[in-house]
Amino acid sequence: MADEGDAGAFDFDEFVEAEPSEEILTRIEQKSHLVEQLIRQSKFTEALKLALEDAPTRTRDERCKSANWIVVHRVLMATRDLESLLSTLEPEYDDILMKYLYRGLATGDRPTCDQCLRLHEKLTERAGMGCIIRILADRWNLV
């Protein structure tokens, strides 16, 4: 419906980075240590929640996004029991987790894709098509 030339044009005007990338990166760094600890204690749901919380979706800096993806990826790959991971995860994390699952599928890495696809099936069962539609539609909060 939007004009070819206009599509996304409104996306980029008036965009200001809310905070410097360095600060975001430091925070993710600290977060990753805590996440590691939780993984060692086999508290996967807590680790995942922590990894998903405060994800740098608003920034345009790819370094921040990649750094957080590495943390989320670490938890996803460490988890064996996906059923219990999802059943203990509150629904408010559904949308953000789904975004990371698609990021994982985009990597093309076989084990990552396998894991993301398994989780995708279970998450879709729970969160429905609405969740997928939301993450496909959202062009502002990208992971």
């Binding site: 969160a127 429905g128 098509m129 609405g130 539609i133 939301r134």
Partner: peptide
């Protein structure tokens, strides 16, 4: 304002 996210299609 209140927003409800739906489970299904838009």
């Amino acid at each position: 304002a209140q927003t409800l996210a739906l489970r299904d299609l838009p």
